[in-house]
Design a protein around this nucleic acid. Structure first.
Lengths: 216, 216
DNA sequence: GGGGAGTAGACAGCTCCGCTATCCGATAGC
DNA sequence: GCTATCGGATAGCGGAGCTGTCTACTCCCC
């Protein structure tokens, strides 16, 4: 399969494919016969689709996708590390992370993790992300959102159990990692959308719309 | 309060504040005495902090923040519409949304909503977002992730109930809208982080780490 | 075996986004 | 008056994510 066929099979323009090759998201095709005649396999098609999913639906950056996929390709990398890199995008604020609100958020999260009996690495990037979110709530003075964290944690636990259940079904290592990756990244988007719909439903249930005014 | 004090109170550089004024994220200060001597109030401080939260933690674009805040300021806009605009960021793919996978995803989502008894507007942007996420799963052939949607929907329902509970506590209209907005946008980030931690915990529970090899 | 289409690879350029820097005339406070 | 600062406008900058162009080569069809 040549690059134009790869393009046609995935809908990704040829120059973009070349760009991904350059950036190391997509491995080079096998250049068997001559140095300017590479051939691509079905794995390239799969990989390219995965890349577009992570970029478009998952909202990851090209650099993050590169790192995540490098981790996927390395058989020594644990599944947990792969996901850690995937979440690294949103995090990495780093700056001014040392005011009173952060301190409070850190304490709150530690208590929450303790209550739940969770075992979470102290260096997990998700910790910083959660602290940043909580600190934002405190900084804006929205105290009554604080209690939501407990509900979220319970729901997150259910979701995570289901996630793991789906992942362990998969025997093949590469496919399992891919399942976990997509489940996590695309799952975020799916859950957020479902949450929005559930909010609309719940809101309508408690405040019955008179006759759906269709105002805007 | 002049612009330099506003800057000092929020940590946002003066040129950036001017940029937000230009873009209409932040209302102009009152220009009482002379045309080049505006004064800013505490509301500007609050607003500016909100803007930074939506940009940094929520990951919204400047244009989206502008639209969302315009909706917040318009007393005729329903809370539901404000949130609809907030989610509009991730959505808006629009292109090539008509293959077999999308059709299947649409059917699946309709069934899920029906099973749950949800009442969701047919034009809700969250619908398209959810369809896009499901279609991605199908396109990648990760069939065993399909069943997760039901678990997610259940968890989303719990989260949404709690969200609404927090929002209805707030009496003041403006503050209530702001609570809902931040709760939704920052809540997405918080939930995602908690989910990641719960995944780590669940994974460790089912596959006890030998002695925490600390490999990478 | 000649010719046109296609290819790998390199490199420059383009558009958009989120700021940032500079300038201007006016004003505030001393 | 004098200087620092202000509001407002305009231009520029740096990174991200492609896109376009060029060159040397090779494939396939005639």
């Amino acid at each position: 399969m040549r690059v134009s066929e790869l393009s046609q099979a995935t809908g990704v323009p040829v120059p973009t494919i070349k760009y991904y090759l350059r950036e190391g998201l997509l491995p080079r095709g096998e250049t068997t016969t001559s140095p300017n005649q590479a051939s691509y396999s079905d794995e390239h098609v799969t990989r390219l689709r995965l890349i577009r999913s992570l970029l478009d639906v998952g909202g990851l950056s090209v650099a993050t996708v590169r790192d995540v996929l490098a981790a996927v390709d390395d058989p020594d990398t644990s599944l947990h590390d792969v996901l850690g890199r995937a979440v690294g995008t949103v995090t990495a604020t780093g700056a001014d992370a040392d005011d009173e609100h952060h301190a409070r958020a850190r304490t709150r999260l530690a208590g929450l993790i303790d209550d739940r009996g969770w075992h979470v690495s102290p260096h997990a990037p998700a910790r910083e992300a959660a602290v940043a979110a909580l600190a934002t709530i405190y900084r804006l003075g929205l105290e009554n959102l604080d209690s939501l964290a407990d509900v979220y944690a319970g729901a997150a636990e259910q979701v995570a159990e289901a996630d793991l259940g789906s992942v362990v079904q998969v025997a093949d290592r590469d496919r399992r990692v891919q399942t976990a990756l997509v489940g996590t990244v695309v799952g975020d988007a799916l859950f957020a959308a479902l949450r929005r719909m559930a909010q609309e439903h719940t809101s309508a249930k408690h405040f019955p719309p008179a006759q759906d005014p269709e105002q805007r």
